[in-house]
Design a protein around this nucleic acid. Structure first.
Length: 271
DNA sequence: CAACGGACCTGCCTGC
DNA sequence: TGCAGGCAGGTCCGTT
């Protein structure tokens, strides 16, 4: 589920409920996520106030007390604000109970997510430090992309999905951005001209921006902080549309595996 | 160092 | 109907 637009949608949904609230209790029902939830988490966060709710790539950062909570939603994670007495359902692995009677509840069937605590500058955390620039920020431009791709033989699609190149572009939006830019997903990253890098950067920004504006993409179970789905699915041009007509040329959309991920494209419009 | 495969999990869908 | 197999929005880590 969650690529950057879904994480940003989640951030925007939960932020107003969290800012300046105090965490009165951290309840961990299932610590076995991709990495175990630290046993001493409660000690760090209980009775601390949430000062900021930020995002870096697909990580959510809750600045509370004298450190940060890092939350990653993995493939199937979601966060919701619910009344603290709401009955717990399957796969709801932890709650941050807030003063005022609500709690932030995390659900993640596949348990690929993360909940970690760091007392340092979160940007220096080993998981965040090596991340590439934000796709919507000024650092991500054609010159950067061109330089980054120099000499790389990897196909552009898995290259674009590499969080060390640029953060936040997962499978759905890599497919959509490449379609929008008219670039074939299997083209070697190092063999894309500066002009086309410019087009691609623009496409990534447009696609992500539009997805955020529509509350993200709900394929199966993504919901925002209020439990509502995203509406970008209806704007998808290629993802999940194998065999259906290309919106530009009406020829059938192809699907093939690239870098072990389903890759959708129009061989006529993408070169 | 780049590229690739395996691993971490559950749920859902398909086909036998 | 049951079950095995494949596939799914992510990304870390170890090996070539």
């Amino acid at each position: 589920m969650p690529e950057l637009p879904e994480v940003e949608t989640t951030r925007r949904g939960i932020e107003p409920h969290l800012l300046n609230r105090r965490i009165v209790q951290a309840v961990v029902r299932e610590p076995r996520l991709r990495r175990p939830i630290p046993a001493d988490l409660a000690r760090h966060v209980e009775n601390s106030e949430i000062h900021a709710v930020q995002r870096r790539g697909k990580y959510l950062l809750l600045h509370c007390g004298c450190g940060h909570l890092l939350i990653h939603l993995g493939m199937s994670g979601s966060l919701r604000i619910v009344p603290a007495d709401t009955p717990v359902q399957k796969h709801e692995h932890f709650d941050l109970v807030l003063d005022g009677g609500h709690c932030l509840r995390y659900r993640d069937p596949r348990r690929f997510g993360l909940l970690l605590w760091t007392a340092e500058d979160p940007a220096a955390h080993p998981l965040l430090a090596p991340l590439g620039p934000e796709p919507l920020g000024p650092e991500f431009d054609a010159d950067y992309l061109k330089q980054c791709a120099h000499g790389r033989k990897s196909a552009i699609k898995p290259f674009l999905m590499d969080s060390h190149v640029v953060v936040g572009v997962g499978n759905i939006y890599a497919n959509e951005s490449l379609f929008s830019a008219g670039i074939h997903p299997a083209r070697a990253a190092g063999r894309i001209s500066l002009t086309r890098c410019k087009i691609l950067v623009h496409a990534v920004r447009e696609v992500l921006g539009a997805a955020i504006a529509q509350g993200g993409t709900t394929l199966r179970d993504f919901v925002d902080g209020e439990g509502k789905p995203g509406y970008f699915k209806q704007s998808l041009n290629v993802y999940g549309r194998a065999g259906e007509p290309c919106v530009d040329c009406a020829r059938p959309i192809q699907v093939q595996t690239l870098g072990r991920r389903a890759t959708y494209f129009c061989p006529h419009c993408q070169r």
